[in-house]
Write a protein that binds this DNA or RNA. Structure first.
Length: 571
RNA sequence: GGGCCCGUGGGGUAGCGGAUUAUCCUUUCGGCCUUCGGAGCCGAACACCCGGGUUCGAAUCCCGGCGGGCCCA
């Protein structure tokens, strides 16, 4: 437990006993952080039960609390009971634990709980475009946060190699003559193949014969035709190679890839069907399709019918998804699905159906809104897209220009490598900084922001700290609070001490967008300290200040790592 | 037609029941450069979609509009 958590416990205890002393033991109260106090207890909530003005309550409670331990002062003000934390303890304890824990500072000990994070899972029919780029970045950041919260995390991509879209793609790849379409000018399989997908879609609309060919292929696929299934799988694998390359470029590596077709092949999807048919919620339409009626499961209006077989008895996407989730829960204690907002209803239905199947576990979902273009929605089929690969290229090349203009001393190789880290950092930071459910309109100049609230701003502060520590050429650690009394030093240390609770919020509450805000807070506090206080040139404070610089660097590294952003030592 | 999500300075964004000053970035204007890396620091300007209600207190909760996104038939 860090100093801040202990402080919170002490406040709990102090208020608890004070309430006892004024004759109202066990009353519930709220705590909040504010500018006026390290922790404040608003007494408005207590005023009804105590039949007194909040102001009086705060004053009476204060009389019964003697500052001790980490509590340095208690003050009633405007109906609030304000607690201040003992700064000297905060300073030394925070710095000591950062030095002792290093990369693990802010992390919690292992819980022994397995969490599966399913993310990305985009249809392998085209390159990843920025409309969906939130998915891997949110998923990966969440996975990293959960690891730091002490969970055993496995990340997983559910590959949709069943259904109309991949069949259309496969038909295109196998039947559209090579020379008849212009492949995109990028040497990656996903970019090469997408042209055939587009062409196949176009031909299908224009030519009923081709439409029939594709339908026939789909029928054979669903009848279990090994040749077709193999061909589709092969095409999807090729496409996926390209997607993986892109993911790897933005520091996203998934632990496991699971293929949808496997749940048809091993019979588990059929098994789900027969189990659902036996449930009391099951019914059949006139043409023979099976559904569950979910009106008892909080699903409103006309959406209560959840179809799980077609009239010919074949399974649907959602049926296979059920089999998949049952399989997932054999391997994990908890599951989180990162999904586009269009999946909201489907996800709710999935959860209800899992309940009906008697599953004791239900996945948690995290939704995000799509990123659109100023002119509207992106579409792979129509070619109205900005590819993630193009965004990466642009970000990296702008970062490269920036470095070249200010660091002529670096080798070409070093500049290229650093430019990658900065460009990727800018992209990941920009996407993760906004609340996932808020809709975003993609604008180049906003996506490529390098100043202020940006990834490069944090990276820059990290590099600056590294440079100072290098120049220092040796110093001893000093965590003596009397050596760090400047207001900027104190403010910075306070920020550093909050890291644990930020990680907790990002992981446990799945509020990953708080991470970049916190990183910015650290960087800004460091810049203020840097501008106000000399470090290398100071005398008796030198060791302590360098220790603070080192600790800031450690926390920044941890934040950036959690965001999946590299932290070059120079830039 | 029904359901879910979103609406905060010129642009973007945090806060989602609390304190006289609503966060941060960008922009505009003004200041800091003989200082450890100026991708920086300091200051100023500018905002809670509209109308009701609940509450000691509403950007935050409820109801009704309006605008945008998504889903279902």
């Amino acid at each position: 437990m860090d100093a801040r958590q202990r402080f919170e416990k002490e406040v709990d205890a102090a208020v608890g006993t004070a309430l006892e002393k004024i004759g109202s033991p066990g009353l519930k109260f709220i705590k909040e952080v504010s500018d006026m106090a390290d922790l404040a207890v608003p007494c408005f909530t207590l005023s009804k039960e105590l039949r007194a003005a909040p102001k009086e309550i705060a004053e009476r409670l204060a009389e019964h609390i003697v500052p001790s331990g980490l509590i340095s002062s208690v003050n009633p003000l405007n109906g609030y009971l304000n607690f201040m934390m003992d700064e000297t303890v905060l300073v030394s304890e925070t710095l000591k634990s950062i030095l002792a824990e290093g990369d693990a500072y802010g992390s919690m000990p292992g819980k022994g709980i397995r969490v599966n994070v399913e993310h990305t899972s985009t249809n392998p029919t085209g390159p990843i475009h920025v409309g969906r780029a939130r998915n891997p970045i949110i998923g990966d950041t969440l996975a990293r946060s959960l690891k730091r919260c002490g969970y055993d995390v496995q990340t997983e991509y559910y590959v949709n190699d069943v259904g109309k879209q991949v069949v259309i793609l496969t038909w295109g790849v196998n039947n559209v003559p090579k020379g008849s379409v212009t492949e995109e000018d990028r040497d990656k399989t996903d970019h090469k193949l997408v042209a055939y997908y587009r062409e196949a879609n176009k031909l299908m609309e224009e030519d009923d014969g081709i439409k029939e060919q594709i339908s026939e292929m789909l029928r054979r696929f669903e009848d279990g035709d090994k040749e077709i299934i193999g061909s589709v799988r092969k095409t999807a694998e090729a496409m996926l190679d390209g997607l993986r390359e892109t993911l790897s470029d933005i520091n996203v590596e998934l632990d496991k890839y699971t293929w949808e077709s496997d749940f048809i092949a091993d019979g588990s999807a059929k098994d789900v069907v027969s189990r659902l048919k036996g449930s009391k919620y099951a019914g059949q339409t006139e043409d023979g399709a099976w559904y569950l009626d979910l009106k008892d499961f909080g699903i409103q209006g006309k959406n209560t019918k959840f179809t799980f077989t077609r009239s010919d008895g074949t399974t649907l996407y959602t049926t296979r998804d059920l089999a998949y989730h049952l399989d997932k829960f054999k391997r994990s204690d908890k599951a989180v699905d990162v999904l586009g907002e269009d999946q909201k209803l489907g996800s709710k239905q999935l959860c209800s159906a899992l309940e009906i199947l008697g599953s004791d576990k239900i996945p948690e979902a995290m939704f995000y809104s799509f990123v659109s273009l100023p002119e509207g929605k992106m579409s792979t089929r129509k070619g109205v897209v900005v590819y993630l690969d193009d965004l990466i290229d642009e970000a990296v090349s702008r970062a490269y220009e920036e470095i070249r203009s200010r660091r002529s001393d670096l080798s070409e190789e070093a500049m290229r490598s650093i430019a990658r880290k900065i460009g990727i950092g800018a992209i990941r930071y920009n996407i993760i900084r906004v609340h996932p459910e808020k809709q975003l309109i993609f604008k180049w100049n906003e996506a490529l922001n390098f100043d202020g609230n940006s990834g490069p701003y944090l990276q820059y502060v990290h590099a600056r700290a590294c440079s100072m520590l290098k120049k220092a050429e040796g110093y001893d650690h000093d965590t003596d609070p009397s050596m760090l009394t400047d207001e900027y030093e104190r403010a910075l240390i306070k920020v550093l001490s909050k890291f644990g609770s930020v990680i907790r919020e990002a992981g446990e509450e799945k509020r990953v967008h708080t991470l970049p805000a916190y990183g910015h807070e650290v960087a800004a506090a460091f810049n203020q300290f840097y501008a106000a206080v000399p470090v290398l040139a100071s005398d008796e404070n030198r060791n302590a200040r360098l220790t603070l610089v080192e600790c800031t660097r450690t926390v920044l590294r941890n934040v950036l790592d959690c965001l999946g952003i590299d932290y070059p030592e120079e830039m």
